[in-house]
């Protein structure tokens, strides 16, 4: 949506050709920004109606069609527990469960999930009734700033449902879509392993 800001270009008044994007500036001088007339979007506020079941509650939204599931949850459903770390599917902070399968909610549009069952961190447990994973994350100090934590826990919940990871190496590997810049990986592993072991025991 905002690619102009992501790659410098030297084009003139229309979108530059790919070859021009990578070419070094031939000479310093005028830099004319490309226009986006090519997109032909003049009224970007048309909305579509989206029905989602979020943590068991049926909800209806009227959203610009390019609203991601992540932004729908955070900005329209008011569920800020799901975090945005990159918006590009590169960090896992936005992980939620769709019909029990973990996905990056920034990589799907809300309209694409019409009618689906969405579970966010708020749906997994509350402060007075924590899920096993949530409790294990506290016990093992599996976070620092806590920003990646909802995504880690949703991802680990998905991993439990998948039932494929048993060993430490398998858990490490299958939890590697969730970055933790605070570096709490050793403790995340310990927390998830405890719950995996308890479920398979």
């Amino acid at each position: 949506m905002n690619d102009d800001q992501d790659s410098p270009s030297t084009g003139q008044s229309t979108l530059p050709a790919a070859s021009e994007i990578t070419a070094a500036p031939a000479a310093f001088g005028k830099y004319r920004a490309p226009t986006r007339a090519a997109f032909g979007l003049t009224s970007p506020v048309e909305t579509s109606s989206v029905h989602l079941t979020i943590n068991g509650q049926p909800r209806e939204f009227h959203l610009a069609p390019w609203t991601t599931l992540l932004d729908a949850l955070r900005l329209y459903a008011g569920l800020m527990g799901t975090k945005k770390g990159c918006d590009h599917g590169q960090c896992g902070a936005c992980t939620v469960l769709v019909n029990g399968t973990r996905i990056n909610s920034c990589l799907t549009l809300a309209v694409m999930q019409q009618g689906q069952q969405i579970t966010t961190i708020e749906g997994l447990g509350t402060a007075t009734s924590l899920s096993a994973l949530q409790q294990a994350f506290i016990d093992h100090d599996a976070f620092q700033c806590g920003y990646c934590t909802p995504g880690q826990i949703c991802s680990a919940q998905g991993l439990l449902y998948e039932g494929k990871a048993h060993t430490e190496d398998e858990i490490r590997e299958q939890m590697s879509g969730n970055l933790c810049r605070c570096g709490a990986y050793v403790n995340i592993l310990a927390a998830v392993k405890e719950v995996v072991d308890a479920q398979t025991a």
């Binding site: 949506m1 102009d4 830099y31 004319r32 920004a33 986006r36 610009a64 390019w66």
Partner: peptide
């Protein structure tokens, strides 16, 4: 008014520059 619109508008906003080495 909305995040989606602000992002779209920012993407289409044009600025011209005089570039120096």
């Amino acid at each position: 008014e909305t995040y989606e619109l602000a992002r779209y508008a920012a993407a289409v906003l044009r600025l011209d520059y005089e570039q120096e080495p």
